[in-house]
Design a binder for these strands. Structure first.
Length: 185
DNA sequence: ATGGGGATCGTCT
DNA sequence: GACGATCCCCATC
């Protein structure tokens, strides 16, 4: 993991807040970066009934128990992929779900992958984000870097942002904690 | 603008 | 065998 991404070793709810405003990209085979500014994240902990890691290590959650800075990609509702960045110290299964981003590069590619959608809807949900960036199970466990060459790229914010904390979306357990973070306009 | 329901299958009990 | 860390369409207001 590059030094600039050392903060991913931190606690998931701290990292989830920090990640708002960072720019996340999936590189095309031709080198083009497709993605934008992260605008919505959620933190998931090992001791968190809403987390896939709550019931311990399974084949699906193996990556969450591994080193930070890697993608945990899962399949849900029989048709959707969702992507997390693993955080926290090794062995302490934590991850940050990437729920939305504001496209700022490769927008034409994203429109092609999500035909008929308005630009603001290209990556405005966790499964939409994976569609727009072409992330699937084949990308599970891949590392996130900040190099010019990596397949998944995380670049620091270009300015400071205001962030709001809210309850997480779509869960039935542990609904009271404010572990969803949203970029304020 | 808002709300209800269907699609669809891997994962875990 | 039940249930999702969801999205989209369609009905109704």
């Amino acid at each position: 993991m590059p030094d600039a991404l050392d903060f991913l070793i931190g606690d998931a709810k701290d990292v989830a807040r920090q990640l708002i405003g960072w720019r996340f990209y999936h590189r095309m085979p031709n080198g083009e970066l497709v993605g934008g500014t992260l605008s919505e994240t959620e933190a998931y902990h090992q001791d968190d009934a809403a987390s896939h890691a709550y019931n311990g290590l399974t084949e699906r959650t193996r990556v969450m128990f591994g080193p930070p800075g890697h993608l945990y990609v899962y399949f849900t509702y029989g048709m959707h992929w969702c992507a997390n960045i693993v955080t926290g110290p090794v062995g302490n299964a934590q991850a940050v779900l990437l729920r939305a981003l504001i496209p700022d590069n490769g927008i034409v590619i994203m429109r092609g992958r999500r035909p008929g959608r308005a630009d603001k809807e290209l990556a405005s949900g966790p499964a939409k984000l994976c569609q727009a960036l072409s992330i699937s199970g084949a990308d599970n466990s891949k590392p996130v870097g900040n190099e010019q060459t990596g397949e998944f790229v995380l670049l620091p914010p270009t300015r400071t942002y205001h962030v709001e904390a809210t309850p997480r979306i779509g869960i039935t357990k542990n609904r009271d904690v404010l572990w969803r973070f949203v970029l304020l306009p």
